[in-house]
Write a protein that binds this DNA or RNA. Structure first.
Lengths: 108, 108
DNA sequence: CGTATTGCTACGATAAATGTAGCGCAGGAG
DNA sequence: CTCCTGCGCTACATTTATCGTAGCAATACG
């Protein structure tokens, strides 16, 4: 895949409108993106621990999402290894927490 | 594709764990799912108006997401035509509103 | 009848995700 | 040093999802 870090421009579908919410909605609307943020909400995880947490998702996509989320400034690779949320990423994750309660009521 | 409405069981990746948050994260982590909810946050839209709002996304995916979101109970097709959010869907959408403000600060 | 809109589908082309395997690198034993 | 283990990350063929264009049946209006 070699999805090498585009500089500033990245084909984020919804961003043609210029509205950042569209870019964010597109970024988070990719497979495993939301899940990764969710799994990282606690302590940092190594790439393999994250893979295990994400139900053995293929490392290809995980790596792709991780790169995108890192470029977006939500995730970072700690010095001692292991992925964790940046302050910004943690803030984003907080935004999603109400979703947990919602899901519990929704499950049917 | 013929993604016909499975009865109750649908291969929602994360739901193997039994945690509803995973099923929700997977459902919302599909292309255009978040965007559709977002565009429907106001008044109901016809399928074509929604397509226009979603940057001319292909009707194939839109229809697929719409079906999934309807099965999940978030979206409904009004009697006079046009898709709108159910009370539950509106509630879910409220959960996402903070994301808008977050995106504005994040845009860089 | 024609025209225009609705929700929805078919289908070939293209892009993305999956699954398995393995790379190079670093840190500890022995 | 060599062997071993785990790290982040990548290759690549297969499968799946999405795209883009076209068009269907049903309904409504004139």
């Amino acid at each position: 895949m070699t999805k090498q870090a585009g500089s500033t421009t990245r084909r984020v579908r919804g961003s043609r409108t210029g509205r950042p919410i569209m870019a964010l909605l597109d970024l988070l609307g990719r497979r495993w993106a939301l899940r990764i943020l969710w799994e990282l909400r606690g302590e940092p995880l190594t790439s393999r621990a994250l893979r295990t947490a994400c139900d053995e998702a293929s490392p290809t996509v995980l790596q792709a999402r991780l790169t995108e989320l890192r470029e977006a400034g939500f995730v970072e690779l700690g010095d001692g290894g292991g992925y964790g949320l940046t302050p910004l990423g943690r803030e984003l994750c907080e935004t999603f927490m109400p979703l947990h309660r919602f899901a519990e009521r929704w499950k049917r």
